[in-house]
Amino acid sequence: MTAQVEDPVTAQQKRNEMLARLLAATSLKDRRAFAELYQLSSAKLYGVVLRILVRDEWAEDCLHEAYMKIWNAAGTYRPDRAAPMTWMSTIVRNQALDLLRRRRREVRRAEPENRNEEVDPGLLPQERLQQSEEGRRLNDCLEQLKANQRQVIVLAYFKGLTHEELSQQTGTPLGTVKTWIRRGLDQLKRCLES
Rank of each mutant, 00 (worst) to 15 (best):
M1V: 11
A3N: 07
V5N: 12
D7Q: 06
V9G: 10
T10L: 11
R15T: 07
R15M: 13
N16A: 15
E17H: 11
M18C: 10
M18Q: 13
L19K: 01
L19S: 01
L19E: 02
A20C: 03
A25Q: 01
A25W: 00
T26I: 03
S27Q: 06
L28D: 01
K29H: 13
R32W: 02
A33W: 00
E36Y: 07
L37F: 04
Q39F: 05
L40G: 08
S41Y: 12
S42P: 11
L45V: 08
Y46G: 04
Y46Q: 09
L53N: 05
V54G: 07
R55N: 10
D56P: 11
W58M: 11
L63Y: 04
A66V: 08
A66H: 08
Y67S: 03
I70D: 01
W71C: 02
A74G: 02
G75E: 14
Y77R: 08
R78D: 01
A82C: 03
A83K: 00
P84E: 05
T86A: 03
T86W: 00
S89C: 09
S89A: 12
V92G: 06
R93H: 09
N94C: 05
N94H: 14
Q95A: 06
A96T: 12
L97G: 03
L97S: 06
D98G: 04
L100H: 05
R101F: 06
R105M: 10
E106G: 03
V107R: 12
A110H: 13
E111I: 09
E113M: 14
E113Y: 11
R115N: 12
E118F: 11
P121W: 04
G122M: 02
L123N: 12
L124Q: 05
L124T: 03
E133N: 11
N139D: 15
D140Q: 07
C141S: 05
E143Y: 08
Q144W: 09
K146W: 09
Q149M: 08
R150S: 07
V152D: 02
V152G: 05
L155T: 12
A156R: 07
Y157T: 00
G160S: 13
G160I: 13
L161R: 02
H163V: 03
H163C: 09
L166E: 01
S167N: 06
Q168H: 10
Q169N: 10
T170H: 06
P173S: 04
L174V: 07
G175I: 05
T176G: 00
V177F: 01
K178E: 04
K178R: 15
K178S: 03
T179I: 03
T179W: 00
R183M: 10
G184S: 08
Q187T: 15
Q187N: 15
R190Y: 05
S194M: 14
S194D: 15
S194P: 15
